[in-house]
Design a protein around this nucleic acid. Structure first.
Lengths: 143, 143
DNA sequence: AATATTCACTTGCAAAATAAAAGTGAAAGG
DNA sequence: CCTTTCACTTTTATTTTGCAAGTGAATATT
């Protein structure tokens, strides 16, 4: 890995990521869909951060346009709508988990149990796999 | 790792991270300071994304307040100011590198060389160490 | 069948944040 | 001195956000 490689690319992977999810509400929505099993519009709305309805709608549209979520209507109750994380969104899990480990270390008021950072450090791939399995489990109840 | 652990903490590590850097301009500034060796106000200002001067000042103040940067005046030329990334900021490297790998996979126009994702997957710790060393090298020219 | 309720959004408006451009003031150079 | 550099500020126009109140389709209730 030589110097040249560092110089060659002027910041774009970070800028690409920034354009898709570098926003408080996108962070919260992605957390809810990837880590908290939330799928329905109303579930996102009721997260404790209290996102406004218009902003939530705008962000869901944005994330759908960026290929992070797919929108579906519940087949037994057409007035209900749910959003599923795409493979692209799920592929963010490693980055999110790293961020979360960082938060647990640097936020003195973290609510994450110490076991989380330990488990991730111990077996990052296994931890990602566990969250992936949870996502599949939740999805299975909807399709 | 049981179900209970997932349920216990309602989203806070992500929210903490969101409060500190979930913003386009914070992403860019952190990229520049962690990955591109930028330290001076004028260097941040001249990044190709074109951040406005008032916004840049606001973000630098914010990142300093959050313990991500420290502000210093150049001792040989007092009109020059530079910002150094703290250990807290540097500890974000793994998360940033994971994000960048994600971008190289999902952005068809990525400017990152394929060797980057390969190198990171091959030896994540070594890759982080390499960037840490670059940060130290740049810092050494300033202190 | 008529009415109420749930649900996923929209709308309207005030307040806050942002962008662009010009300005300021200290410090260094000539 | 006089000019330039540098790190911000200020100003003003525009955009985005947040809140509260709708809206309309689909279900549940009477």
């Amino acid at each position: 890995m030589k110097r040249k490689e560092l110089k060659g690319w002027n910041g774009c992977p970070v800028r690409y990521a920034a354009g898709i999810f570098a926003d408080k509400w996108c962070f919260v929505i992605l957390r809810d869909v990837l880590l908290h099993g939330k799928r329905y519009y109303g579930e996102f709305q009721s997260s404790e951060e209290g996102i406004s309805s218009n902003i939530l709608a705008a962000r869901l549209t944005h994330l759908e346009a960026e290929g992070m979520l797919t929108r579906h209507t519940d087949r037994r109750k057409k007035s209900r709508v749910f959003y599923l994380p795409t493979a692209k969104a799920r592929a963010l899990l490693p980055a999110f988990l790293e961020m979360m480990v960082w938060s647990t270390v640097h936020d003195s008021n973290t609510e994450a149990p110490p076991s989380f950072a330990a488990a991730f450090r111990d077996d990052p791939k296994g931890t990602v796999a566990w969250y992936e399995a949870e996502i599949d489990r939740v999805n299975a109840t909807l399709t």
